[in-house]
Write a protein that binds this DNA or RNA. Structure first.
Lengths: 230, 230
DNA sequence: CCTACCGATCGGTAGG
DNA sequence: CCTACCGATCGGTAGG
């Protein structure tokens, strides 16, 4: 009887692995096809899964094992793609900000010949889509978990956030000049973005209010005010 | 030479305690005076310290050892006062909500003979004070860490939150009826509270904008709108 | 409220 | 990307 029998090939698959795999997976490591090989598939899968988990459970309460399991990896494997859990958090935020920036820039281009009111309506609507869309967990994560970043990461993200906020300023300035917006532009920007961002706390896609309804209400609240008649 | 000498009174104070205590404390366990005895001193100290730590580091990233050290206890001692870390979180939130409710009720009583605009201004101002005051960490914690509560705790808190939100409704309805507020009342309430709540993200007491400035800007934004002249 | 400790978990790593 | 594991930490507890 052998004293040492490491890695016996007949050893049964541990139950915990069967729990994580819905269907039997083929034996051995998956072959890398031409489409599959190191083109960032797995890396993107990791930060997308991380984004969803960070959003629903919070950064500190999410384990790297959760993330690994979500994409069918073993516990140590995420560290092959990301140096640390922190790097994963940063990737989630950075990818999200870049996507949001691109969408808002497209919105501004699409509405550049319209009135400032229409431009604001476009920014508000796109912001709601970015915030509340099914696959955009990035922004809520960014808004809630920034304190877990390193200073250098925070700086990089701050620059992206400034870019994003600055997209709003010319529109708000125009509306301030035309009298549609009464509050000072800087504070108005902060309060408006806050009102929109907070919707991640209460928006329920199953309720009756749609993103369009929200956009209408926001516009009415911010720039649809009446004459102060008393 | 005695084998067992538990609680030897000559035993030196462990260095870790000296680090936490700015001044030398009297030897032995502190005597309980009439004022001191179990009147909730230590319990309140714990949830107040927990509130500050949960706010700055987040619930999951704060250890019960952090909390114990902040009030000069040993690692296991918070569990003498609270059944679990979870119970501490709940205490922070509940105490905060009750304090906020009391302050807003006082505001409404103080302004009950004034115009709805003045009443809203009072609610906004008090809300900012509750949010941004030096000793009110409770609300930000509540807003960010609710997912760590048990369902029963969440229910209790939801009831308090509903009470708080309902304080705003009559005022907003009056302003809607008078034409000062254009957006639907329910969505307006959500957007307005969101705009205010978000200020915990960016408000800096060392910057020039005061809570009064914020209140003015918020009023201008929500109910100070101009005629839509184009 | 302290002491001493447990059981579990977790981020991360060496080596393949 | 997996295996096997470490070092540290953490919530919580027994007993006093």
């Amino acid at each position: 009887m052998p004293v040492l029998e490491p890695q016996s090939p007949q050893r049964p698959i541990p139950p915990v692995l069967l729990l994580n795999a819905e269907v039997k997976r083929p034996r051995g490591r998956p072959r890398k096809t031409a489409q599959d090989r190191d083109d960032g598939n797995r890396r993107a899968a990791l930060w997308q899964a991380a984004g969803a988990l960070f959003r629903s459970k919070g950064f500190a309460a999410t384990t790297t094992r959760d993330i690994a399991a979500a994409v069918g990896m073993q516990s140590g494997s995420p560290f092959y793609h990301f140096k640390s859990k922190d790097a994963l958090l940063f990737a989630v935020m950075e990818e999200g900000m870049r996507a949001a920036l691109a969408r808002q820039q497209a919105t501004l281009e699409r509405t550049q010949d319209q009135t400032p009111l229409a431009q604001l309506r476009g920014l508000v609507h796109t912001h709601f889509l970015v915030l509340l869309g099914t696959q955009s967990d990035f922004i809520p994560v960014m808004l809630y978990e920034s304190r877990s970043l390193t200073p250098a990461q925070r700086d990089t993200l701050s620059a992206l956030q400034s870019q994003y906020e600055n997209l709003w300023v010319p529109v708000l300035k125009a509306l301030h000049a035309s009298g549609h917006l009464r509050a000072p532009v800087v504070l108005a920007r902060l309060l408006i973005l806050g009102a929109l961002n907070w919707s991640v706390q209460w928006f329920d896609p199953h309720k009756k209010a749609s993103v369009d309804d929200l956009s209408d209400a926001a516009m009415a609240l911010f720039v649809g005010g009446s004459v102060a008649s008393s």
